[in-house]
Nucleic acid binder design. Structure first.
Lengths: 171, 171
DNA sequence: TCTCCTTGCTTCGACTTCGAAGCACTTCTG
DNA sequence: CAGAAGTGCTTCGAAGTCGAAGCAAGGAGA
């Protein structure tokens, strides 16, 4: 009999389905909470959180940010524009590269984030972690970390019309 | 440093971030693959897959389907319309409830799905499971299953039955 | 220096998404 | 058997999303 690739394995298939389902439900709940609490979308929240974490400057280049939150560049441009309009971030040309735009979180942005975080973590705790022990959480993190690294390091498989980062990272 | 509720726990926070990140990357890759292979969106794929799995009839009611794939009803209406136009599903009134619409996958739909699956599982295997042993996959599935059940059983927090002008559920 | 190619970001247009409102049918209640 | 309340789906309008194309700046090679 054929024994095609590993993926037909029902265990893996189940893990995959559960992963998608859990994350969909979680995102949905988070989105509602953010919307009620501060009228922010999940993408906007991710932008602010990423900037805030990336202290001390709280800045990022557009492309890096888009890559970090897994969002299209054009989509990020749009959202960054909204956040700027709301006074939560600023956009300034990058000093050493006149093409680049640096996004920086403002004090108002940090304040809003601080105000939101409790409710946010509450939702995540209640939905995601309630059925998991601390050890379970550790296990989950330990399982996902290598996957994340693997995905980040794996090239996009199909060379883009506009080539992505060259054959190798020369940085 | 304060030590507010449980959720600030860095381990859980890390697991949460990794979960979001991994799933975002995975969905992104899957979406590209589906687009190239059959010009289907992930939502459309989920619809077809869900219908196909739900044998033998391969049918579902709109609401159940929307709930299963975690998508808005209106969004499902839109996508089901596209799939119907493409001949991959049919929509018929539900026999015993004249309000309902039953969606059924067609032979063409099943054929397309069968054609796509190998490439799909290939992507999932390569991205998600390559860094995981079989045991890891089992562990992951075992961790996520209870979370999924918990999320599914937890009421949406504000379970308002379609409020109509401040009316209260008098039941 | 002058090209030519690459890269960073934005603009543009087409499509998708969602919630609210609306319509039609069902069920509950008296 | 009404009338009221509930449910299933679609329509509608506003907004967000993406990829492709466009613009401007950096960089390598002649």
């Amino acid at each position: 009999m054929h024994h095609p690739p590993e993926s037909v394995d029902p265990v893996r298939l189940g893990a995959y389905f559960a992963l998608i389902e859990v994350t969909s439900l979680l995102r949905h709940a988070i989105e509602q909470q953010l919307r009620e609490a501060a009228d922010l979308s999940f993408v906007q929240f991710q932008i602010l959180a990423r900037l805030d974490l990336h202290s001390p400057t709280g800045s990022h280049r557009m492309t890096d940010l888009a890559d970090a939150i897994v969002h299209s560049r054009s989509g990020l441009t749009y959202q960054a524009g909204l956040l700027e309009k709301a006074g939560l971030v600023t956009r300034t040309p990058t000093p050493d590269d006149e093409r680049g735009t640096t996004v920086t979180i403002t004090d108002a942005g940090r304040a809003l984030l601080a105000e939101i975080m409790p409710g946010h973590t509450e939702v995540v705790s209640r939905l995601l972690f309630e059925p998991l022990s601390h050890t379970d959480a550790e296990t989950l993190a330990a399982l996902l970390a290598p996957v994340r690294d693997h995905m980040r390091s794996t090239p996009p498989r199909s060379a883009a019309p506009r080539r992505r980062r060259g054959a190798r990272p020369s940085r």
